[in-house]
Design a protein around this nucleic acid. Structure first.
Lengths: 228, 228
DNA sequence: GCATGATATATTGCATACAATGATCAGTAT
DNA sequence: ATACTGATCATTGTATGCAATATATCATGC
């Protein structure tokens, strides 16, 4: 179950909530669990029946998700799950890298022992999950490793946006797209980044992060976008 | 009239649209024109009456705007226009700068004569608007000057997000907050940036942009957040 | 056989009725 | 006076009916 990990909109359901937000969250879960997939059309009444609510909260939730770019919307025609294009994925990778590299210096300057322990924990989480090929766990834990570095900046808006970008990317992928050798490479590269960050070597960290993203892109894109 | 310039969500109303999107756009206009102001509560029925529609599309539009961070929302209590805190403004400034500086090199490398002319036009637009103190025109034209540089990168998602960040910031300000001497300084600083970009001096451009944002922040924040 | 047009069907869009919730205010007890 | 309780009111939340729109089906004509 990945339900506790989604980032979209950074909404945290509280005791006081409404159906719109619950439906919104549920749809994200459906996307993360491949129960609805990129390209698939979403029909109000079907979703409403499936979730046991009326069309109103479904309509609301879909409006929000469309605005965030997770769904496509055509007036009078309806909603469908957005299928990220190769170009969009490139755009997002590019933004992701600029943010990560751009804030790495501040993150490292801000880092304390607590941060470092936390980061190590995220690194271990990824490694421990390598064997268990469930859902999108690896994508999420990979993202969490990187995001944990950025979290040290202390800029909540940045943290939320970074996670949103990563999620938009990995929602396009399937776990099978990550081949084992790439998974193990990621582990090694994370280790290298972790070491460089720990010794506060900003320039080396930046280089390693750039290299890491480049490798990920080179490995995944031919699989995800074979024709383009 | 600033209606043609808003960025939120980058939705462009087409022939086929629906009331939700029209209401959404209208509320943005109301925010830009100070007809609804930060902190103000938004009541469904009032807005619906004012815009001549039912509560349904208003509800939809407000959900979207809340998700984007332009409105605050408390379930069973309602919506209010978000009043950006000093910290949030600092966070946004920080992100803005990292994006702008981080992509400046690529922008300059991509620049051709057409881009350069376009940028000069944006620079002139700002200068011409200095005398006409209407609405948020200066904020918008200032943003457009900077965004025009980033547009050269050719990353649509980046361009949209950059404008969104700027808009979130300047929605918190009022035109009166920009004092004349700062307005004239901006003109000079834009000129310097423009020159550096034109001669493709990436490092100098970056320094000037950083300086420019720092000055803006130092001038505006004491006025906008006097107590904090 | 293919294009065209009319009809039927499915789905979205909007308004509204009713229910649920929270805020306000008055009244009572301490 | 202040704190508590209950009734009233305002507003949000949800479901649903009907209208508008788009799509699919089928018949007709060439």
């Amino acid at each position: 179950m990945v339900g506790t990990f989604y980032y979209i909109g950074s909404i945290f359901l509280k005791k006081h909530s409404n159906l719109t937000l619950k439906v919104y969250q549920r749809i994200i879960e459906l996307m993360l669990n491949y129960e609805i997939v990129p390209g698939q059309r979403l029909v109000f009444i079907d979703l409403a029946k499936q979730l046991g609510v009326s069309r109103t909260p479904v309509n609301n939730a879909l409006s929000i998700l469309a605005q965030e770019g997770y769904l496509d919307f055509v007036p009078n025609q309806g909603y469908s799950v957005h299928k990220l294009t190769k170009q969009e994925a490139e755009f997002l990778f590019e933004i992701r890298e600029v943010l990560e590299v751009g804030f790495l210096g501040k993150a490292i300057r801000n880092m304390d022992d607590k941060n470092m322990k936390w980061l190590k924990k995220r690194k271990n989480d990824y490694e421990k999950a390598i064997s268990s090929h469930v859902d999108r766990k690896l994508f999420i834990l990979d993202t969490e490793f990187h995001a944990s570095i950025l979290d040290m900046v202390g800029n909540d808006i940045l943290s939320a946006r970074y996670r949103d970008i990563c999620q938009k990317i990995f929602l396009r992928f399937r776990t099978e797209d990550l081949r084992l050798n790439r998974i193990l490479d990621i582990k090694i590269e994370h280790n290298d980044i972790f070491e460089a960050v720990c010794v506060r070597d900003v320039e080396r960290s930046k280089d390693l992060v750039r290299l890491h993203h480049k490798s990920s892109q080179q490995n995944l894109f031919p699989i995800i976008f074979p024709t383009d």
